Amino acid sequence: MASVDVVIPCYQYGRFLPEAVISVLSQGVPDLRILIIDNASTDGSADVARKLAELQPEIHVSLHTVNQGSTASYNEGIDWARADYFLLLDADDMLAPGALRRALRIMEQNRKVAFTHGIETHAVDGVVTPPPTADDDDTGDGWQVTDGWKFIEQLCRTPVNIVGANTVIRRTSVQKAAGHYRETLPYTDDLEMWLRLATFGDVAVTPHVQAIRRIHAQQRSERYRNAQLLDFRERERAFFSFFEHEGGVHPGRRALEQQVRRELGKHAYWSALSHYFRGKKQVAAELMAFSRERRGRAGLLPPLDWLFRMNNPIGRVREVLQEAMLQRQRP
């Protein structure tokens, strides 16, 4: 079977680290290495990592004396990797049963696939209910393979990061060719990386749960999720960074950049409306201004096509408005 390298960056997540490691070791992949990179944690994470490495020869440890940031850890992991396939798994998250076998099967069968991804289920407040153990008989079913440039164009039409980072299993050779994550994109370096990886081949997605992400207040990303305007601006920066570099070879680059701006404006319009009905008028005003800047004269009109691009759009609108009214009624 093919070999896999898994890098687990850790900062202050020592209490979660054993579960993350166990979720990798239980994948049933014999040729497997794990690198835990501790970013100068003060919660005893380094001791936990050392103990795990003492118990399992597959586990290696890199301990930083100074916090270098998550991007530096990702890039250290890329430099360390030498297996056929490569995965970055956050220390507070877990792989779902069968995730590696599913990904390796499709990538071994289809050598054009540059990376795979799948469903990333959420565990709110750190309470994890693992998905049922996968049946080996169906691990090859349900994959959809898309040409890499078509994947990029689809993301430009709906510029939302639909790829769960913990589910992304990529060819190490492709990751090496794509290079490091960019430190200039502290919030959306992963979104830009999916675009870059897609320039090297096809993208395969499975309907299976591939990873479990914990949602808890200590996450750095939790603060980012609550900064709505920042989210839109950073997504835009990720796309523009891609087209300034690797994506510059696309013959329709300028049109795609304009499409990204326009579609982000449409998304911001509906987000502004949602925040307004929830009584968050300042956030709504900021988002509406962002929308108008990117949509021009069309900025005052509801972009209904954005809604109809989503599943069950009428139901989504109803849910947004109902939730907004409930929020306003709460003390």
Rank of each mutant, 00 (worst) to 15 (best):
L155C: 14
P132G: 13
P97E: 03
F200P: 00
I169F: 09
A96Y: 00
I152M: 06
A103E: 06
A178F: 05
P159L: 02
L191Q: 11
I212Q: 07
G142N: 06
R196D: 01
I152C: 09
E108Q: 14
P131E: 02
A114R: 01
G126D: 05
A83M: 01
T167L: 05
R171M: 06
V128G: 02
R157W: 01
D90L: 09
D138S: 12
A114D: 03
E192K: 14
N110W: 05
N166V: 01
L89S: 04
R157S: 15
S173K: 14
W149T: 07
R182V: 07
M193G: 01
T139P: 00
L197F: 06
D136P: 12
D135Q: 10
D141K: 13
P97K: 02
T199A: 10
A165C: 08
D79Q: 10
L155R: 13
V168G: 02
G98H: 01
R182H: 06
R171W: 03
I162V: 14
D202S: 15
I106T: 14
C156Y: 01
R214P: 00
M193I: 04
R157C: 12
F115E: 06
P186A: 07
A211M: 03
V209T: 15
E153A: 13
I215N: 13
I119R: 10
D84I: 03
W143P: 05
Y74A: 09
R157N: 12
R213G: 15
F151A: 14
V168R: 07
G98C: 05
T184F: 00
R214A: 14
T167N: 03
R111V: 15
T188S: 04
F151I: 11
V160W: 05
R111H: 13
A83V: 07
R170H: 03
A178Y: 02
G179E: 02
E108C: 13
L89E: 04
D141Q: 13
R82W: 01
Q210N: 11
G118N: 02
F115L: 13
K176M: 11
W143I: 09
G126A: 06
H180W: 01
V127D: 09
A91F: 11
D90C: 04
R213F: 01
H122Q: 08
V145P: 00
P159R: 03
T158N: 09
T116G: 04
P159H: 04
F86E: 05
I106S: 06
F151W: 11
R105F: 10
Y181W: 10
V128D: 03
A123Y: 00
A211T: 06
T172P: 00
V168F: 04
R101N: 07
R157A: 15
H122D: 09
A134K: 01
A177W: 02
C156W: 01
F151P: 08
Y74S: 06
L100C: 08
D125C: 08
F115N: 08
D189Q: 09
A177L: 13
T188L: 04
D202F: 03
M193A: 11
K150L: 12
M94K: 08
V127M: 05
R102V: 11
F151N: 12
Q175T: 14
V209N: 08
Q210T: 15
I78M: 11
P186T: 08
K176D: 10
Y74C: 12
